[in-house]
Each structure stands twice: as C-alpha cells, then as structure tokens.
C-alpha cells in the first residue's frame, strides 16, 4: 500500500528581506528548500513506512530544479519520487494546484492501493493551507487537517485514527483509508538522512510527469485554471525594533504605551 506524500519546494522565506529603501523583496542568495511543514509530513509518512511497511512516494509540482528537493526526500527514505513539471502547470493558484496533484494521485491509485495521502499543513511562501483540502475534495477522500498525531492505522479494518489540533482543543478522529492527512510541524522531529541513502539519492531516478503524461485540460490547470488573480504585491508596514518610553522611571505609562501599540496593530485582542 502507498503513502502518497506531497512536498513543495519553496524559497526560504525566513531569509527573504525587504529592502528598506525600495520596498522590494531582496531574494538574492535565498536558497530553495523543502517546505518545512512538508519535512514533517514526509517524516510522518516514513514512520508509517517503518511501522506498517507502506511504500512512500513523494510528489512535487514545480519547476525542473524541484528535483533537488525530491532527492532530499529520497535521501530521507522515500521509495520513489515524481516530479510534476510543465510550463502549463505554472502560475497555478491552490485550485489549479490541487487539480494536478489530485489527478497524479488518481494515476498512482490505478496501479497500487493508496492508504494515505499526506501533505503539510501549509507552505511558507503561499501560506494558504488550501491545497490539502483541495486534493481531498477532488479525490473524494476524507480530509484530516491539522493532525499532530497519528494514533494508529488499523490495516484490517482499513481505518486511521488521528489527533487534530484546533484552537483550544484536541479532537480524536477516526477515518477510513484512504484519507488525506495534513500535518503540523509539532507532529514529530524529522530524521536526519544517513549517508548511504544520501549517496544513493544523488543519482536515483526521479520520474518526470509533464502534461503529456498527465493529459489534463489546459483550462483547469496552471494560470488558466486558476480562479484567483494576484493583483498586487507590496511590502507590509514593518515594525522595526523600537524602545518604548521610559520604562525605568515610568513603568505604568510605558506599559500602557505598549498595550496601546499592541491593540492598534491587532497583535493582541482583548475582546
């Protein structure tokens, strides 16, 4: 049985800076990495592999250099890697992204039974957390988002039990296989790749699926299949570090100042 795992290659946005003068993003030297949430999703898949003997296939949609990220997944222990790359896949919003990813999953399902489709809670570039639900809905699989613990997989009954983390509470949910799970970062501590696997991954095959392979209608994918349009991008008002008031002599006043700032910027809410 398969665990299909989605990973996205993203720019390391924590290294992105905004040029204080021009207000544009400074991306120079910012490397591409495996989306941090997906590292945890992959880890969770690999743990399922260790525990239940599933095969783990990683898929990623992106430009050709996404291969680097897929190789990292292979080094960590994934069994196979598939790159979904085509000019016509480009510029996709979450709707058009989930279209391609769901179709690719269907293709895999034709050959081998799928136990679980795993993805990260969200990415650090698009930040939407919408692709997971999108894939699940398209496949008609139950979706288990915000999972921080996979309690167990019952292979006999074909069920998976997970713990979901919501605001102020946990939820224990049981769902039939196959289900889609989106993983929180706190779910696990990712492993470190062993060297023999790293060496193996350096030249392991990564399958390429372009639209010739996928055969999808162009108005459902990529830019054309996207329902949202990003009209404008601008840099947010940045709060640079500032020292407030005179905390040493007027603590009460300074504390007020801080609270007002936090309220004004919606950082805290005292409703």
């Amino acid at each position: 049985m398969l665990v299909v795992t989605f990973v996205k290659q993203v720019p390391d946005t924590t290294q992105v800076k905004v040029d204080p003068v021009t207000g544009t993003l400074v991306r120079e030297g910012v490397p591409f990495i495996m989306n941090p949430f997906d590292v945890h999703a992959l880890e969770e898949s690999l743990r399922l592999k260790d525990k239940y003997g599933f095969r783990v296939i990683v898929l990623s949609m992106g430009p050709p250099n996404t291969e680097v990220t897929l190789r990292k997944a292979l080094a960590l222990g994934a069994d196979e890697a598939i790159l979904l790359s085509d000019r016509v896949f480009g510029g996709a919003d979450t709707l058009a992204t989930s279209a391609v990813l769901a179709e690719a999953t269907k293709k895999l399902a034709q050959k081998e039974e799928i136990a679980i489709v795993m993805c990260g809670k969200q990415t650090i570039d698009g930040d939407t957390a919408q692709v997971g639900p999108g894939i699940a809905t398209r496949l008609g699989y139950p979706q288990l988002t915000l999972v921080d613990l996979i309690v167990n997989v019952d292979l006999q009954a074909k069920k998976v039990k997970v713990r979901r983390r919501l605001e102020g509470r946990y939820e224990i949910v049981e769902s039939p296989l196959p289900s889609l799970i989106s993983i929180l970062r706190r779910a696990n501590r990712p492993r470190y790749p062993v060297v023999p696997r790293r060496l193996m991954a350096q030249d392991a095959p990564v399958e390429l699926w372009n639209n010739k392979v996928m055969g999808l209608k162009e108005d459902t994918i990529g830019l054309k299949g996207s329902a949202t349009q990003v009209r404008k991008i601008f840099s947010p008002e940045r709060t640079k570090g500032e020292i407030l008031g005179d905390g040493a002599n007027k603590p009460e006043e300074t504390a007020k100042l801080l609270i007002d700032k936090l309220l004004a910027k919606n950082i805290i809410c005292l409703k």
Binding site: V16, L25, K232
Partner: peptide, 10 residues
C-alpha cells in the same frame, strides 16, 4: 504571504 514578508491583494 511569504511568512509575512509581503502583502498580496488578490
């Protein structure tokens, strides 16, 4: 988006 580094109007 981008971890809070940019704002996008969609």
């Amino acid at each position: 988006a981008f971890g809070g580094n940019i704002m996008a109007t969609i």
